[in-house]
């Protein structure tokens, strides 16, 4: 299983693509927002938590279709399915690799981009914490979407359509956590809810994703 994780990480680093692109996309989104809403600091500071979370979420979405599609194209997915390793473990590892190459770098980059949006001082810690706790759920749910659409030729757009509604609770609690942190209010409820959603998705979604992969392999 570690072999699979190392292989996916090595591929992500070597083949370029996903690793850097998500970060660049995040930067572009954050750059474009002031052009859309005006440069006024007060407005930006108020919407910063939402924009940062939304940007991270969309950046996460970008690399989802690569999770299984590449393995499907070169036949590795069939071979992984016949290897002595449960499909649930394969999808869990894939989600972890996606998080390490997307969610984690986004979390680390977020405070830098927050400066551009005048995020209030007190909220930086909460921003990093919320992304650290919340982005694993994005990767796990995205892996499920990727598993559903793995057999499709133009699955990318459909994948977004299927996954984005699933992101609603995570987005709500994640952005709310930062917003409350920025206003100096208590953050326990959104933090616990966010952590609960992440823990539950990590525990349960691999079973759904693995089932979807098996169903997809059946059709040919």
């Amino acid at each position: 299983m570690i072999a699979l994780l190392l292989r996916d990480l090595r591929l992500a680093v070597r083949a370029g693509g996903g690793f850097g692109l998500g970060l660049v996309f995040f930067l572009i989104v954050v750059t474009l927002v002031p052009f859309g809403v005006g440069p006024e600091g007060g407005v930006l500071a108020r919407i910063a938590p939402g924009i940062l979370w939304l940007g991270a979420l969309l950046a996460c979405l970008l690399s989802l279709d690569r999770i299984f599609a590449l393995d499907q194209e070169d036949g590795s997915l069939d071979l992984l399915a016949t290897a002595p390793i449960p499909m649930e473990a394969v999808v869990a590892i894939k989600a972890l690799a996606h998080w390490l190459t997307t969610g984690l770098p986004l979390t680390i980059a977020a405070p830098v981009l927050a400066v551009l949006l005048h995020l209030p001082q007190g909220a930086y810690g909460w921003l990093v914490l919320s992304l650290l706790v919340g982005t694993p759920a994005l990767s796990v749910l995205g892996t499920f979407g990727a598993a559903l659409t793995v057999g499709l030729r133009r699955g990318g757009l459909l994948l977004s359509l299927l996954v984005l509604p699933l992101y609603v609770p995570t987005l709500i609690f994640g952005a709310e956590l930062v917003r409350r942190g920025a206003e100096g209010r208590t953050v326990e409820v959104p933090l616990l809810m966010l952590a609960g959603i992440t823990a539950a998705t990590i525990a349960l979604m691999p079973f759904a994703s693995a089932a979807a992969i098996r169903m997809n392999l059946r059709q040919t």
Partner: peptide, 29 residues
């Protein structure tokens, strides 16, 4: 339980070397 299946596609990763490709499958099995 453990059978080895070889399909039309070889399941190789172009970005990895021959050694890395083979090592991956060996460790997986």
């Amino acid at each position: 339980a453990g059978l080895a299946y070889a399909a039309h596609a070889d399941g190789l990763k172009g970005a990895l070397t021959v050694r890395e490709n083979l090592t991956f499958w060996a460790r997986l099995h």
